[in-house]
Simulated assay, not measured.
Amino acid sequence: MFKPTPNPPEAETDHQTPPDSASPYENPHTKKFHEAAERALDYYLNTEGIKASSRSPSTMFIINPDFDAETLLVHACESLASANVMAGDLAGTLEGPSRNALLGIAQIIMLGELAVNRALDRLDPPA
Rank of each mutant, 00 (worst) to 15 (best):
M1G: 09
P6F: 14
P9C: 14
E12C: 02
E12A: 15
D14G: 06
D14M: 03
H15L: 02
H15D: 10
P19T: 08
A22S: 00
P24K: 01
P24W: 08
Y25E: 10
N27K: 01
N27E: 08
K31C: 03
F33Q: 03
E35D: 07
A37F: 11
E38R: 13
D42A: 05
Y44I: 08
L45M: 13
N46L: 00
E48C: 07
G49M: 13
I50N: 03
K51W: 13
K51G: 13
A52P: 00
A52N: 15
A52C: 00
A52Q: 11
S53G: 08
S53L: 14
S54R: 15
R55C: 10
P57Y: 07
P57H: 10
P57E: 12
T59K: 01
T59I: 05
F61I: 05
P65R: 03
D68F: 00
L72P: 02
V74H: 01
V74C: 12
C77K: 07
C77P: 05
L80F: 09
A81P: 08
S82A: 02
A83F: 06
V85F: 03
M86D: 00
G88I: 00
G88V: 00
D89F: 07
A91F: 08
G92C: 06
G92K: 03
N100S: 03
N100D: 01
N100W: 08
L102A: 03
L103F: 05
L103M: 10
G104C: 07
L111E: 15
L111P: 04
G112P: 04
G112I: 00
E113T: 05
A115H: 01
V116E: 10
N117W: 08
N117A: 08
A119I: 01
L120H: 07
D121M: 07
D124H: 10
P125C: 08
A127S: 15
